[in-house]
Design a protein around this nucleic acid. Structure first.
Length: 254
DNA sequence: ATGGTCGTGTGACGA
């Protein structure tokens, strides 16, 4: 089966892009982030053969899971803080597996409460993934992690040195997730630098390949055993009016 | 060093 992730930077603006990607990729499941609005075009996806589950809020954030087959929603927010209203987490079940879609907080500027929120959100996520691991529940978590794991995951480490996406506090927590026994699916197949999933709209970043790798798939051990491929599909970044992110596609043995 | 770009929703803020 094929599962993809994509930060679309507004579903209203990128509806045709997403439909085109579904057609091109034939993905069984597509997890999208940054919907950026209350409305979700459920009917438009139904017309092309995908049911959807969406968690939305006004203007910001928002995540959805599109699927050819039905899914059961397990959590529509990250457990651990009843006061957290931001639409950033969706966990569903299909065929005994959990698929978790996240839009992890950006965290900039680092000298504000936004960075504290990011780190606290990551701590809650580690608790959730620890629980799933203890219960031996097979899962794939994917989405916009807003973390640059290593130097080679950005074009210019000096430029990112003090950024919330690259600060040691963020990378340490990402590492803690890997240390649960999870696999960074993309890195199984390609360990080279200059593989990116995001390029800023400004300063010709895309044309110069000045990007960062911040959209990830992490797999629990039994799912990792079925891993066949994980690739970055850079083509949609070159379409008209693109998102600033591009999809990552995961293939698992049936 | 500065300004450079998008999106929401029509301001300023977020990325």
């Amino acid at each position: 089966m094929k599962i993809a992730i994509w930060n679309v930077n507004s579903i209203k603006t990128r509806l045709e892009h997403v439909k085109r990607f579904l057609g091109d990729s034939g993905a069984d499941i597509l997890m999208i982030q940054e919907l950026k609005g209350l409305e979700f075009p459920e009917d438009a996806f139904k017309e092309v053969g995908y049911q959807s589950q969406a968690v939305t809020q006004k203007a910001y954030n928002g995540v959805a899971i599109l699927s050819k087959k039905p899914v059961k929603v397990i959590h529509d927010k990250l457990p651990g803080d009843k006061k957290d209203e931001q639409a950033r987490y969706l966990e569903v079940e299909q065929d005994g597996m959990r698929f978790i879609n996240i839009y992890l907080p950006n965290g900039n500027p680092v000298d504000t409460e936004k960075f504290d929120y990011k780190l606290a959100w990551m701590d809650r996520l580690i608790v959730r993934l620890t629980d799933l691991t203890k219960d031996n529940i097979p899962f794939a978590i994917g989405g916009d992690f807003n973390v640059i794991p290593e130097n080679k995951d950005c074009h210019d480490p000096k430029r990112w040195k003090d950024d919330a996406l690259f600060r040691i506090e963020s990378r340490k927590r990402f590492r803690a997730m890997l240390n649960l026994g999870l696999t960074d699916a993309f890195r199984v197949f390609d360990t080279r630098a200059e593989n990116y999933t995001f390029w800023d709209y400004q300063a010709g970043a895309w044309q110069k390949n000045h990007g960062i790798r911040i959209d990830h798939f992490l797999l629990s051990p039994t799912i990792a055993d079925r891993l066949q491929s994980c690739t970055i599909d850079a083509k949609p970044r070159d379409w008209d009016k693109p998102s600033d992110h591009t999809p990552v596609i995961l293939e698992l043995a049936a």
